[in-house]
Design a protein around this nucleic acid. Structure first.
Lengths: 252, 252
DNA sequence: GATCATAGTCGTCTTCCTGACGATAAACAC
DNA sequence: GTGTTTATCGTCAGGAAGACGACTATGATC
């Protein structure tokens, strides 16, 4: 068929962000409160329109910086400091996903270390870290007994997909270190796995596994006591990005 | 920021397809010859515009049917016959990826059993199965000594990403059976792995692995001799979609 | 200061899985 | 029948992981 500029319908293209972190031993996602219809007042994932001259990953990095102040890692430079891991997740384009018009959203997944309180256009009450299970329980009740409205649009599905991606990807990659500060202990890394998977891991076998995988962790020489108990060695993430053999997620 | 319909630039949204199959012991992809500029006469991945009332997966399934006659599997019904596995791959949106206008392409990955010669709008000379390494060697020479032009647009990158997805996904899922006819032998399944990974696998260990994984293969009772040699048992794909522990790709 | 609780670290033992490879079985080509 | 090809079963050694004991080094409590 010949090229005809009028032959395609116009779309709006957005990026939405699943920003995950680990706070107080639970996996949390960044949610922002919508200020306008549709879904006004409801919680949603941060996101926005892709600009005319912008690549998708640029748009995602810009939105991430606007919402959190984080600067996105280039995936090829995993040892950067003070940044977050950012990768494309999936694209959602149901014709009815936005009642206003045809919007295709390219969702991205960001993993960040624990951060200070989020900001959303300077208004802290309109952005928060919430445990993912709280955001995903549609129409249930939150920890404080308040009724919980489901996320706007199809954002519950997007969040669920992002969480699943994170859960499976820390199995066979060193991505769990993206949840940690630049220097961390084996115990802190283990608590990341435990929070993301929602399971308890044996500290001794975990220690053997991560310290025995070449290139995964490199000791910095320092020690610290952050949790009470015996001081622990500090490590940085090593150059290895793939874990082979993988970390095994315990059976249910 | 308030909602303003003029605040976002219009995009064209397309789906592109990486359709993979195994023919003559090598991994092949479907390529179509472009009939109009840009890249006129060059090979490209099949694809087209998403229609106004169509979901992304519907558009991909429609394009797949138009190009190959295959009907896409619903991923939740893996035992369907005469269909192909279809899943979303990734989305490509570089502002300059199409010189005509801003096009965002949602690439999909399809895995199909060996098929008769492809058709593209009824014209067989404009569609072919080509070994992926031939399509990916930019500016080299094909098997027949003819110079090979690289794929149009960013389709070489999309194809490479699709091949990598297929290579890694058959490790931990039963997806390799999507390359096989409804009934197949262990040897045929092994040759799929060998073609996709480009390695030789030990027939005895492979047999032990696939027949020992519960739910992966179910015997149909029949036997066949398709390759010469002793007749082999026929199997269908079992209900298990995840392989745990995974099939290990040999080190290089 | 002794005791206890908490974490971190090192070992051991058993079990399971894999890679390497020998041996047998059942077809076909000559 | 002999050789060739492919399928299938078995054996054995090595590595990785789960279960779990033991020891170490801190802070908290009495």
């Amino acid at each position: 068929m010949p090229y005809d500029p009028s032959a395609f319908p116009p779309f709006a293209v957005t990026v939405d962000l699943v920003v995950l972190t680990v706070r107080r031993h639970s996996l949390c996602a960044l949610a922002v409160r919508r200020g306008e219809p549709p879904f006004q007042g409801r919680w949603a994932l941060p996101g926005g329109f892709v600009r005319a001259d912008e690549d998708l990953s640029q748009a995602a990095a810009r939105e991430l910086a606007e919402e959190t102040g984080l600067c996105a890692h280039d995936p090829s430079v995993p040892a950067q400091d003070n940044g977050a891991h950012l990768e494309q997740l999936a694209t959602y384009g149901d014709p009815k996903r936005d009642p206003r018009m045809r919007v295709v959203s390219v969702a991205h997944l960001a993993l960040a270390p624990d951060l200070p309180a989020p900001r959303a256009g300077g208004d802290a009450s309109n952005a928060r870290w919430a445990p993912v299970e709280e955001l995903l329980q549609q129409g249930g009740y939150g920890r404080d007994g308040e009724p919980v409205a489901p996320l706007a649009f199809d954002h519950a599905q997007i969040l669920a997909d992002g969480v699943e991606r994170a859960r499976s990807k820390i199995e066979y990659s060193s991505l769990a270190t993206a949840f940690c500060p630049p220097e961390f202990t084996v115990g802190e890394l283990r608590r990341v796995y435990e929070a993301v998977w929602g399971v308890a891991l044996d500290p001794r076998n975990f220690h053997r596994k991560v310290t025995g995988t070449p290139g995964f962790l490199v000791p910095t020489g320092g020690t610290t006591t952050r949790q009470g108990g015996r001081p622990a060695q500090l490590f940085r993430a090593g150059g290895a990005t793939l874990l082979n053999p993988p970390m095994l997620r315990p059976e249910v």
